[in-house]
Each structure stands twice: as C-alpha cells, then as structure tokens.
Design a protein around this nucleic acid. Structure first.
Lengths: 340, 340
DNA sequence: CAATAAACTACATACGTATGCACAATAGAT
DNA sequence: ATCTATTGTGCATACGTATGTAGTTTATTG
C-alpha cells in the first residue's frame, strides 16, 4: 500500500506487458476480453490508479477545465460576488457531469492571466467569468484568440470578435422588470447601475429599461440614473444621493440584487415603505433575494443552465467543433418588493 | 505562435543546452547570472511556459491542491450550502496566495472519493469540506491515513484518529449565542438542529447551548429540541412542528443561519414578532444573515481565516512537517433578531 | 500440410522536464 | 608550466503512460 503502483507492476502481476495493461484499462478492442478483465481486476485489487501527469503528457489532454474568475475591481474585500459564486457552483457541477476536473483560479486581471492554463497544459480549455468592464480586456481576448486557446466566456456578446459567449438577455431582463413595475402603476423610475463607466451587462439592462419606458409612453429621466457597482454599499450610497436631489420617484430598478438590497436599506432608513412608497426590483436572483424584507422581485438568471452551456460549448471547441454564442432568457421572479 | 514551444526550442535560441534552460528558469544557482537572464528573456519573448504535466511527472509534485466538497445528503437540489460556498471562496484565495492551483470537486460521497486525487498525482494534497455526518466517513478517513495521503479536513475534531482538522469552537459558539439570549432576558429556549442524527458540529453547538443554560440555572427542555438539517425549509418545518406542541418559548437557537432563516419565516407567518415575541439566533454568519428582516444575530465563523489555516496546514503536511488540529473561536455578531 | 488471415501481445519509443554526473573552462597557487 | 579548486555547462537518463509496428500464436483455407 505504500510506494506507488505503476502499470508495470500490474503487468508483472498479470503476466502481460505494460502496453497490454494500458490498453486493457482503456478498454481498447485490441486486447482479449478475458485478459482485459483479469488486468482490471488486478488493478483494482492493488488500488492502481493511472498517473494523470504521465497520461496527460503522453496524450496531450488533461481532462481538466480551468475557470478564471475575475473580481470586480472595486470590490477589495475578500468576499466574492454571490452571483459569480453561484455560477462557480453550477460550473463545477456541469464539468463534473462531463467527467472533467475543474481548476479554479482567481485573477487579479493584471498581468499574464491570458497565457497561463492551456499553455502549461494543465487545462484543455478555459472559462472566463466576471464582469468584463476593465481596460485591456478585449486586448487580452484577442491574444487568447491568436494563441488559439480554447475558451468561452460569460457575459454580453463582444462585438467584432469571434468569441463564444454565454450570457443572459440583459436587454430583455431590463425590459421585463420595468414593464412589471409599469403594470403595478409605477411612473417615476430610478435606475441604479453604472452605465457610462460600468460593465456592458449593466448598459444593456439600462437600455432594456429605457425601451420599456418608451414603449409605454413614459419619459426617461436621466437625472434618476445613478452609477453604481455591484455591491449593496454602492446601492445604499446611490439611493442616498438620489434622495438628496429631492426628485420624486416611486420605483427603483437596480442593475443587480446586491445594489437592490442596499437600495432597499437606504429607502427604509429614510422612512419610506417598500413597496408602498417605493418599489424595488433587482437582477440576478441570488439566494439572498428571497430572504430580504420584503422578498425581492427580480430578473432571474439561470445559473444552472448557464454553467452547463458554458461547459458544453467549451468542450465542443476543445473537440474541434464549432460553437455559437448564446443568450439565455431571463425569468421574472415576482416576490413582494413591488407590491402585490 | 502556433505549435508548442519546448525547452529545447529555447535552448536552441539561447545557444545552450536544454538542461541549462531548465535550471535557468528555476533560478538554479548552478547557472551563470548572465546566462540565466538571457534564457529568461528569450523564454518570455517566445511566450514559453513550462509544461506542468512533464514537470509534475518529473518532480512528482503537482503544485495543486484538491478540494473535495461533500454535499449535505438531504439537499438534493443543485444549490450549494452558502456557508461552504463561502469557504470555497476563501480556500481558493488562500491557495492562490501560496502559489497553488486549486482543483475543485463535488463528491457524491458514495464510492471511491477517498482514492482519487493524490493517487493520480493530480494534487499534492486534499482538503475535505462538508458535514461529516454520514456513515462510512470514518472508515474512509482511515483508508486515507493508510494510504498516507496528505489531507486536512474542516469540522469538529475526530476522536481517536490522527487527523488534522480545522474547525470552529462549536461548543463555545453555542454557549455564546445562548448566553446572549439569556442576557436579553429570554428564558424558554428552543433549539433547532439534528442532535442525535445530525453532524457532530450540530451536537457540539447543542451541548454548548445546554451548558449555558445550566450555568445560568435554567432547565433544558428536551421537547423544545427539534432535529433539522441545514436548509431554510427544514427550519421552517421545525418551527411549525414546535408551534403545534403549544409549548411556550421565547427564543430559538438555530444550529445554522439557514435554519434560522426558515424559522423566522415560520414564526412571522404564525403572527409572532421577531424579536418581540420570539428571539432568533443563527450560526455561521453567511452573507444573507445581514439582509434578513430583522437582520440576524449569529455566531460568526471566520471563513477567511479558516481557508488560510486549512491551506497552511495542508502544505505543512505535504512538506513533511507536523500539523495540529486547530479550533477557531466564533464571534458573536449582534444584529436585531434578539432585540436591542 | 503449407500458406494466409485473424487475433492478440510485446517491443520500442516519444511526450517534455529535471537532475546526477561527467566534463570543460577559467582562475589561482606553487 | 603543472596542478588543484572553482564555476558553469552538457550528456544521459528517468518520471509513467500510450501507441505504431513488428512479432507470435491460433484458426482457417486451399
């Protein structure tokens, strides 16, 4: 049980050659049924496991997917955005289902992340996860393409680049929640989320929001759009700023649940009732959203499906097939933060 | 930029041998300062990266840690316990800080998990994460020890086994929250969490709870202890069951935040006020805990520190050093669910 | 019974790196 | 000018597996 078993040890015990052992364990049709069974039994008996390093070195395939998780640059503390954490969970599951191991890596998005995993042969392909809202991002995508790295990414489609993305229909989601609020007879909307500065995802949500207003003959009041990053603190501050302007509003569309949570807190602290005075909707449907008070109405992104799509598409690319960018629909989850 | 670079290519370009390249890149003192610089420059220029498989095969070290995450067996849906998700995040960070890659794997805790990662040389060591409350667990730990696998685990110490564990002081945590409630003049306590059936962690929390009661000359009413697993649904059902007994109580100690969240919901639905009529405390301090209504008072487990300790101790074991089981203190986080 | 096919199995080698050992080159000492 | 010490480099090999090719055995056929 001590020193490591190799295929030669199995071969010796089975009275065959090492190559036969290798073939037997990989179920090659070249070896006799009987021989194969015998070898496999002995292997199990001796608790032999194929050395993945040697195997990968020989086959040039690692059976591993790398997940690169980019942090929100503004979020310095050591908490991870719960939405991405949830994505991480579903990706882990999805890759396990496909028999792949998952290598998880946090990235400082500073240097060299682009070149690390597939080059070193530790992974067959890469999944990029995080808001792509920092400088340099496209440049690095281009470099990945140049190196012919297999990768897929989460998020809004990137224009003019042949990159496979999986994302949700942020425009539609923004439209959806806004429409819901309009049906609840709200008329004066604030929008919380970085539009000029932030991630493309937030911009799409905002544009969907605006479109819904237009389609219902409502005006967009740009003074009620406040930039915010995806933290509850940022949402809290945004609402404070908003209240200071004295402009009236009866609904808040937040670009993410975290922002919405902070917004609700600020609203309630100012003595207003949610949803009575001000309705709030979020975006993402993170786990916390159902436990807030009042429980939050939000546009759900299906992280389970997302994880599976990302893994499936990546594996398609790895095996040389084509793969298409895909947009998933969002689902409106109605709870109580917009009235009943 | 296309076909893969090897150390031979670098050697050719630098006019030295492959072995010199290898040494230069690993900063061996055996190679001349000047030569080393030249080699490293050329390597960077050609975007050369050491093949980790070949390197690992040769050195028998992978530079990788495997994280095995066990699911709560009762939790079938595809959501991960947020506490463990948070641990996952901190472990990811901690191992990155040490320069190790992290291989994440979900386990069905059915067969063979014990033998996979270090045996195949994909990882230098293993971190076990999850409630250790299922049959077979100790048996598998014993097997890991037999195989001389390097591993550490999260959770309560395992008696009679020389296993390195990192956990929090569940007894003290249970004591702490109960004491807090007593100071708030609560006298009739319910405890929600599997004691006979559940995980050892829950049992420790319960015992701390009981000790606090005894130290304050209060009786333990065993009829007010309800088994529950760590989901909000389970907490919800437990309170329903409790209310049906008509026994009076003015405080609930939940064995986890998720249980507490479900409990609060049931209490509020029954028309009682939290904390006015019934105070509630949780355990863990998951992200959601600060967003509930009212915000939850709970015993915080320091996941960031836990992640670092787990990684540090594992790496100690890997490098042949001794490592000790360690209990971390819990911190009482006072919010509003116990009154002000 | 010889010749050919069919079905297995063994031999040899390559994957890319790291390292013990031998060797070369330079410097210093006598 | 010869010898030892010092420093730097190259040669050869091993890590453990997978696979092309050659070889052996048995069955099949003329």
């Amino acid at each position: 049980m001590k020193s490591k078993q190799t295929s030669f040890d199995i071969a010796y015990r089975a009275g065959v050659s090492q190559s036969t052992v290798s073939r037997a364990l990989r179920n090659s049709p070249l070896v006799n049924e009987e021989t194969r069974k015998r070898v496999q039994e002995i292997a199990k008996e001796l608790n032999y496991k194929v050395d993945k390093n040697a195997s990968s070195l020989r086959t040039q395939q690692s059976g591993t997917i790398a997940l690169l998780l980019f942090e929100d640059p503004t979020n310095d503390d050591s908490l991870i955005n719960p939405f991405f954490l949830s994505m991480l969970g579903s990706i882990t599951r999805a890759s396990a289902k496909k028999g792949y191991d998952l290598l998880v890596s946090f990235q400082q998005m500073s240097n060299d992340w682009h070149a690390d995993f597939e080059d070193t042969r530790k992974a067959d392909g890469i999944i990029l996860l995080g808001y792509g809202d920092y400088t340099d991002y496209e440049e690095k995508l281009i470099q990945l393409i140049k190196q012919e790295t297999h990768f897929v990414r989460w998020g809004a489609d990137v224009k003019n680049l042949s990159v496979v993305s999986v994302g949700c229909d942020n425009f539609h989601g923004g439209y959806q929640v806004t429409e819901h609020l309009i049906k609840k007879n709200r008329r004066n909307f604030a929008f919380l989320g970085g539009v000029t500065t932030g991630s493309p995802e937030f911009l799409d949500r905002y544009q969907g929001h605006c479109q819904a207003l237009k389609d219902n003959s409502l005006d967009v009041n740009e003074q009620l759009q406040i930039d915010a990053v995806s933290t509850d603190e940022s949402g809290y501050q945004a609402v404070k700023q908003l209240l200071a302007t004295k402009i009236k509003f009866d609904a808040i569309c937040a670009a993410s649940d975290l922002i919405a949570i902070g917004a609700m807190r600020a609203v309630q602290e100012a003595g207003y009732n949610v949803p009575g005075d001000i309705a709030v909707v979020g975006f993402d449907d993170i786990a916390t959203a159902s436990f807030t008070f009042p429980p939050m109405t939000t546009a759900k992104q299906n992280t389970v499906l997302a994880g599976e799509l990302l893994v499936d598409k990546l594996l398609q690319l790895v095996s040389g097939e084509e793969a298409q960018t895909q947009l998933m629909p969002t689902t409106l989850v109605v709870r109580k933060s917009c009235g009943s």
